[in-house]
Design a protein around this nucleic acid. Structure first.
Length: 450
RNA sequence: GCGGGCGUCGUACAAUGGCUAGUAUGCCAGCCUUCCAAGCUCGAGAUGCGAGUUCGAUUCUCGCCGCCCGCACCA
C-alpha cells in the first residue's frame, strides 16, 4: 500500500488536502491523472447504470437540503450522543443514560456544557461498566454531520444547515418529481453520484475513510414485499460491474451485515482485498423497505404514495439501494492494476494494468529522436490528430525507453512512435503497455486501431 | 478522541548546537541517442508550522498540524 500511495503522489494521482498549509486530515485532492481516472470510473458506472438500463434515470440533487431532511433520515437524532471515555480501558459511556441511572435528570438534547456540569458534579458516583474505574474524560457530543451557515446573515447561526451525511437522500426527495415528470413506472431506479461529508473521528487508511467523499448510489423503487428477487438480481449485477471494471474476482467477496438497522430487511457489502488492510467495504447493497420514503412523508407532510396506473393501488414503495464510495473504488482499481514486473536483463518495470477505457491517458506520442526536427514536427502533427479523439500526451524527453516507462507507470495502454520510416510511408509503431510489443500501422488507421 | 511511534528536496535516504544541509532517483534545459529507465553538461528543489532555551536551533524543550500502528468510532 505504501508503494501505491507513493506512486499516487509521485505521478500526480492523489495529493494530501491543503498540503502547503500542513495538510488537513481526511481530505485528499485528485491530481491531473487522478481526476482522469476518477472521471473514467464514473463514466463507466453511469453508462452501466443509466445508459444501459431502460428503467433507470439519473439525478444530481443540490448538496444543501432543508435541515429537516437530516432529522427525518435519523442522522441528527441518532448521532448526537453525549459520550465520555474511561481513561483506563477506553470504554465509552452514554453520559445522559448514566446520569439517569443514578437519578440525575438528563437527556441527549441538553448542551455539551449542561451535561458536562452535571457529569462533573456526579463523577464520584459513576463507574466504568467495563473496568469499574471512575476516571473519565470530559463529556463530548459526537455528531458526524458537518454543519454550515447557508442563508445565515446574522452570524448567530442558530439554525445550522447540514452538509450531506450521505448522497442518497437527494433521490428520496425527488422521488415524487421523477414520477410526476417522467414516464417512469414502478419498478424503476434512480442513479446519482454525489458528495457526502462526515466528521469521522479518525480518518484513516488513505482514501478509504475520508471526511469528504463521493458516493455513487442507485435507489430502485419497487412494490412492497416484492423485494427478494430484485435484491438478488441487483446483487449479481453489481458484482458483474466490478468484474467489468477489470477488478480481479479473487480480490472481491461478499459480506452480510450481522447487525441490521431496525428497518432493513437485508444488507450485504462487496469487499475488496486492499493491500495492507485486507478485505473491506467498497459498496453496500441494502434492502431498506419503505423506511426512507415513509420518514420523508412524515416529516415533510407530502404524500409520497405511488398510485399504480393499471390497478389504481396506492402504496409507499420499497427501496433497494446500492451505495459505493468513489474513493474506495478508485483505490481498489489502482491497487488491482499496480504491478511491478521483472525485466529481462535485470531491473523492474512498474506498470498500471488499467482497463484501457479507465486509463488517464489513452495514447502517448513520441518522436524517436529529439534532435531530428522533422521527426519532432511529424510527431506533433500525429499528436494533434489523436488529441481530437482521446486524451493524449506528447513526450520527446530523454530516450525512448524512459518515455515508455513513464507511460507504463500511469497506465497508458498505447505509445505511438514516429520514426524515419514514418517520413517515407506514413506508418508509425504502436507499442502495447502489457506486452511491450510493437506493430506498424498507418496514421489513418490509428484512431480505429487504438 | 485516547495510547505509542514518526516528520530533511517530488520520491527514497544521509548529516549537523555554528562553514554553502549531502547522495541517489525523479523533474527542467542542452548535447548525444535509429525503440524499452545508457552517457555527458547545466538548473530548480527540503529541515511540517509556531513559540521557548541559546550569541546561534533542522538538531534541545513545549504547543499545534500531519502521517503510521493499536483501541474506539464507522447510522
Amino acid at each position: 500500500m505504501e508503494e501505491i500511495v507513493s506512486l499516487a503522489k509521485r505521478r500526480g494521482f492523489v495529493y494530501q488536502g491543503s498540503e502547503i498549509y500542513g495538510g488537513e486530515a481526511g481530505l485528499y485532492d485528485f491530481g491531473p491523472y487522478g481526476v482522469e481516472l476518477l472521471n473514467n470510473i464514473k463514466k463507466n458506472w453511469w453508462r452501466w447504470n443509466v445508459q444501459l438500463k431502460p428503467n433507470y434515470v439519473g439525478l444530481d440533487s443540490a448538496m444543501f437540503k432543508d435541515p429537516k431532511v437530516w432529522v427525518a433520515s435519523g442522522h441528527v437524532g441518532g448521532f448526537a450522543d453525549p459520550l465520555a471515555e474511561c481513561k483506563k480501558c477506553n470504554t465509552r459511556i452514554r453520559v445522559d443514560k448514566e446520569l439517569e441511572k443514578i437519578g440525575v435528570p438528563a437527556d441527549e438534547k441538553m448542551t455539551e456544557q449542561e451535561l458536562g456540569t452535571l457529569f462533573d458534579g456526579n463523577r464520584d458516583k459513576i463507574k466504568c461498566p467495563n473496568c469499574g474505574a471512575k476516571d473519565f474524560t470530559n463529556v463530548r457530543m459526537f455528531n458526524m454531520l458537518v454543519t454550515s451557515n447557508l442563508g445565515d446573515f446574522t452570524g448567530e447561526n442558530d439554525t445550522p444547515v447540514y452538509l450531506p451525511g450521505e448522497a442518497c437522500q437527494g433521490i428520496y426527495l425527488n422521488f415524487k418529481n421523477i414520477v410526476d415528470t417522467t414516464r417512469m413506472k414502478i419498478p424503476f431506479g434512480v442513479a446519482q453520484i454525489g458528495k457526502a461529508f462526515r466528521n469521522e473521528i479518525s480518518p484513516r487508511n488513505f482514501l478509504f475513510r475520508t471526511r469528504e467523499f463521493e458516493q455513487a448510489d442507485t435507489q430502485y423503487f419497487i412494490r412492497p414485499h416484492e423485494n427478494e428477487a430484485d435484491y438478488q438480481r441487483i446483487k449479481q449485477d453489481r458484482w458483474q460491474w466490478f468484474l467489468n471494471l477489470g477488478i480481479r474476482e479473487e480480490n472481491l467477496r461478499w459480506k452480510q451485515h450481522e447487525h441490521l438497522v431496525f428497518y432493513a430487511k437485508d444488507a450485504w457489502d462487496i469487499e475488496y482485498n486492499y493491500p495492507s488492510y485486507g478485505f473491506d467495504e467498497v459498496e453496500g447493497i441494502h434492502d431498506r423497505t419503505d423506511y426512507d420514503l415513509s420518514q420523508h412523508m412524515k416529516y415533510s407532510g407530502t404524500d409520497l404514495n405511488y398510485t399504480d396506473p393499471k390497478t389504481g393501488e396506492k402504496y409507499v414503495p420499497w427501496v433497494l439501494e446500492t451505495s459505493m464510495g468513489m474513493g474506495r473504488i478508485f483505490l481498489a482499481v489502482l491497487s488491482d492494476a499496480y504491478k511491478v514486473e521483472e525485466v529481462e536483463g535485470g531491473g523492474t518495470r512498474t506498470v498500471l494494468k488499467l482497463k484501457p477505457e479507465l486509463a488517464p491517458v489513452k495514447c502517448a506520442v513520441f518522436p524517436l529522436l529529439k534532435n531530428k526536427p522533422e521527426l519532432v514536427a511529424r510527431a506533433r502533427e500525429v499528436y494533434e490528430i489523436l488529441s481530437q479523439n482521446m486524451m493524449c500526451e506528447f513526450d520527446d524527453n530523454g530516450n525512448i525507453g524512459k518515455r515508455y516507462r513513464r507511460q507504463d507507470e500511469i497506465g497508458t495502454p498505447s505509445c505511438v512512435v514516429v520514426d524515419f520510416q514514418t517520413l517515407e510511408d506514413g506508418t508509425v509503431t504502436v507499442r502495447d503497455r502489457d506486452t511491450t510489443e510493437q506493430r506498424r500501422v498507418g496514421i489513418e488507421e490509428l484512431v480505429s486501431n487504438l
